[in-house]
Write a protein that binds this DNA or RNA. Sequence first.
DNA 1: CGTTTAGTTGACCGTGCTCAAGGGGCGTGG
DNA 2: CCACGCCCCTTGAGCACGGTCAACTAAACG
Lengths: 247, 247
Amino acid sequence: MLTVGQEGGHEQAVLRRLNALRRLSPEAAIALRAALIERTVRVGAGEDIACEGDRADKVRIFLSGWACRYKVLEDGRRQIVNFALPGETCDAHLYLLSDMDHSIGALTPVVYAEIERGRFEELVANDRTVAEAFWCETLVMNAIQREWAINLGRRDALERVAHLFCEVFERLRCVGLTEGTSCAFPVTQMDMADATGLSVVHLNRTLQELRAARLITLRERNLTINDLDGLRDAGLFNPNYLHLRQR
Amino acid sequence: MLTVGQEGGHEQAVLRRLNALRRLSPEAAIALRAALIERTVRVGAGEDIACEGDRADKVRIFLSGWACRYKVLEDGRRQIVNFALPGETCDAHLYLLSDMDHSIGALTPVVYAEIERGRFEELVANDRTVAEAFWCETLVMNAIQREWAINLGRRDALERVAHLFCEVFERLRCVGLTEGTSCAFPVTQMDMADATGLSVVHLNRTLQELRAARLITLRERNLTINDLDGLRDAGLFNPNYLHLRQR
DNA sequence: CGTTTAGTTGACCGTGCTCAAGGGGCGTGG
DNA sequence: CCACGCCCCTTGAGCACGGTCAACTAAACG
């Protein structure tokens, strides 16, 4: 069930993310913030935000909560192909394609801004930095998607899970959603398995391996990275593909 | 080694592809064709077109030959994350990110058009249909990348290879590079293995299985699909994610 | 309280990997 | 013209990583 309302405070993440990709002009930031609070949608955990086959007619920008993009094969096998984290945009200009080729599900309660085609085009037409920021966002999502292909194709179970943790941590860090070496990780082991292409049983054992190596602590939907360098080594993680500006 | 020169005749594939994604205005088609022949680059088989870490400063549009995007892990494992086929654009607006996060290698002799940042922005600024066509191209590449994640994460060897054949066949068909149920497939088994996340040995055995099932004939770098429906079933292939306009 | 959902553990099995060897085609150089 | 090397494909044998099936625990929730 969807409920629509005003939502304040979370649009900061969006601006932080776009700024990290491409510096926005002050006027652009103001215009964008206004657009983000015009129409927000809340979705409960476990609900679908969009389904494969749905008409694609608006742009979604995630304000809070975790969602995932996924596809289910005929026989029930599910693959999560990416997460959608706060501050991230779900396919700018998506409406140019007629319909969704995958589904988007809420893993936790989610709030996102919904921007109609005309309104979105107005935003990018009025300010070059906004247009470029959304291009960057799309290009980076593409790069992340490539990295997931590498993860699934050529890394073993331990490496995959370690890499996923590193990536998510960085994606959250750039929008200010980490505290020290901790961040939320509100995802079941089933979801993690579907994101890493493993079975739940093997994912569970892999987590235990990471814990035994004192690389991470994961409990009550909270991730603490005890040894960032160690985790990066274990996952063969190199953050360059995230294209976040160095500070 | 690179040689630069004039290249005629192949730009048709680019126009066919962009038109299949978004109808170009007649004037746009003319302007684009002109831009495509201004500066073309030829690369020999096996050479790299771009390397991870290179400065990203121009847009590449492939005119003929096959290339692949790939990344190599520290210990030598290689994953091909996508192919770049004639008519396809390699990251419009790529120059917005400062550098390449992966490499692009030529699998056969390749000819591509190289468009400088200023020239490219002029093209998309002058005609809305061009801008939209490149957005579509990028969004579809993103969708293809997602599908590869599914292939690598949740399909078994036979399904992966069958799916790859179906996808490549469709991508070539929309630019007019198929003849009946045949198309070029100028790729070594090593490359196919790296694209499907399999070992060469197992890929070889999987090919034999597809041949034994009379689904395909693959010899002398030429693929014939003997039973398209059968191959689609075997690969759980649904072309919707390619977003090609139905004729 | 019973039911459901998430996490955990054990035992067994199979897909796909590794290692190793050999064959065929082709270009190069003696 | 043949020899050699190289690349690509193929085959066999053994093994391991990760899947499947099943049972059990603990927490959450009505």
